[in-house]
Simulated assay, not measured.
Amino acid sequence: MSHTAHIPSHRKPRRGASKTAIRSGVAGGVLSTMALAGAAAPAHAEPVTETIEMPTLSSALAGGVAQSATATQRVAVDLELGAQEDAAAAHAAKVAKKAKAEAERKAEAKKKAEAARAKAAAEERASRSEERTTLSASSGSSSDSTGTTQATGSAAAVLAFARAQVGDAYVLGSNGPDSWDCSSLVQAAYRQIGVDLPRTSQPQSTSGTPVSLDNLQPGDILYWGGAGSAYHVAIYSGGGKFIGAQNSGTGVVEKTLDWDPPSGAIRLL
């Protein structure tokens, strides 16, 4: 007997040929499938784009957006209303300022008129004397010891008002109480005795009886230019003088007739 007969062998037993063939077939099938898949795939495959679906607004979030829009609209409305209120307040202030100025102008004119009437009354009382009572009251004038014609009655009131405006400014189209043009001064002076004259010099120059410049009495209206087409008027104040709103350089003045000789005169008193 061999001395190696009882030593076990360490070699693995041979696999059967059938198992080896089966395993080779499976491996081959897998490799063939991978090869076919690789051949079917394009050489430059497009990258896969992942689409992310945005979450929809929840009812709470939608409500918040709506509330924000409503608040923004309310702010815009409030701003517009505020602008309208500011404009209305500015307009009201402007109207109030104008009304106040007009009220002050009327009050000043009334004050001057009252002062003129008081002054005329005082002058009339002072001018009364025995020698003047023989003169006709309708003449509206009297003479002192020097022969100078003095105004009385209605003429005195007219001249008192006109003389109270001496020193005021001349402004074309102005009606007082601190500035005048020639015809507005004459109109305002005669209004003190209730005589309503036209506003401009042209019709004023034909509103009474024509009189000679050699026979003037206080209160007569003097005019420059033609009767009915006069370009300037004033009031004869007696003693060879007149009171008038002459021009922007002189304002309302009392001057002698030779300073600016008139063209004619009319009498209303």
Results as ranks from 00 to 15, higher is better:
Thr134Asn: 13
Thr134Gly: 13
Leu135Pro: 07
Leu135Met: 13
Ser136Lys: 13
Ser136Tyr: 13
Ala137Ile: 15
Ala137Leu: 15
Ala137Met: 13
Ala137Trp: 15
Ser138Thr: 13
Ser138His: 14
Ser139Tyr: 09
Gly140Cys: 05
Gly140Leu: 03
Ser141Trp: 15
Ser141Lys: 09
Ser141Gln: 15
Ser142Pro: 00
Asp144Cys: 04
Asp144Met: 03
Thr146Glu: 12
Thr146Cys: 05
Gly147Gln: 07
Gly147Ala: 08
Thr149His: 15
Gln150Ile: 14
Gln150Cys: 09
Ala151Asp: 05
Ala151Pro: 06
Ala151Asn: 04
Ala151Phe: 03
Ala151Glu: 04
Thr152Tyr: 08
Thr152Gln: 13
Gly153Gln: 00
Ala155Ile: 07
Ala155Asp: 09
Ala155Ser: 15
Ala156Trp: 04
Ala156Asp: 12
Ala156Gln: 14
Ala156Ser: 15
Ala157Gln: 12
Ala157Lys: 10
Ala157Ile: 10
Val158Ser: 00
Val158Trp: 01
Leu159Pro: 02
Phe161Ser: 01
Ala162Gly: 00
Arg163Ser: 11
Ala164Tyr: 04
Gln165Gly: 03
Val166Gly: 06
Val166Ala: 07
Val166Ser: 05
Val166Ile: 14
Asp168Thr: 09
Asp168His: 06
Ala169Met: 09
Ala169Gly: 06
Tyr170Gln: 09
Val171Tyr: 01
Val171Lys: 02
Leu172Glu: 12
Leu172His: 13
Gly173Gln: 04
Gly173Phe: 02
Gly173Arg: 08
Gly173Cys: 05
Gly173His: 05
Ser174Trp: 02
Ser174Phe: 02
Ser174Tyr: 00
Ser174Asp: 09
Asn175Cys: 07
Asn175Gly: 08
Gly176Val: 01
Gly176Asp: 00
Gly176Met: 02
Pro177Cys: 01
Pro177Ser: 06
Pro177Asn: 03
Pro177Lys: 03
Asp178Gly: 09
Ser179Trp: 00
Ser179Asn: 01
Trp180His: 01
Asp181Ile: 03
Asp181Glu: 08
Ser183Leu: 06
Leu185Asp: 03
Val186Cys: 05
Val186Thr: 15
Val186Ile: 07
Gln187Gly: 08
Ala188Pro: 01
Tyr190Phe: 07
Tyr190Thr: 03
Tyr190His: 02
Arg191Ser: 12
Gln192Thr: 10
Gly194Asp: 13
Gly194Phe: 10
Gly194Asn: 13
Val195Gln: 06
Val195Pro: 03
Asp196Ala: 12
Asp196Ser: 14
Pro198Asn: 14
Pro198Asp: 14
Ser201Met: 06
Ser201Ala: 15
Gln202Glu: 14
Gln202Ala: 14
Pro203Leu: 12
Gln204Glu: 14
Ser205Lys: 03
Thr206Leu: 06
Thr206Met: 11
Thr206Phe: 08
Ser207Cys: 10
Ser207Lys: 14
Gly208Lys: 03
Thr209Tyr: 08
Thr209Asn: 11
Pro210Glu: 08
Pro210Ser: 11
Val211Leu: 08
Val211Pro: 05
Val211Tyr: 00
Ser212Gly: 12
Leu213Cys: 06
Leu213Phe: 08
Leu213Thr: 02
Asp214Tyr: 13
Asn215Glu: 14
Leu216Val: 11
Gln217Thr: 15
Pro218Glu: 14
Gly219Gln: 07
Gly219Asn: 07
Asp220Gly: 05
Leu222Arg: 04
Leu222Ala: 11
Tyr223Val: 09
Tyr223Leu: 11
Tyr223Glu: 12
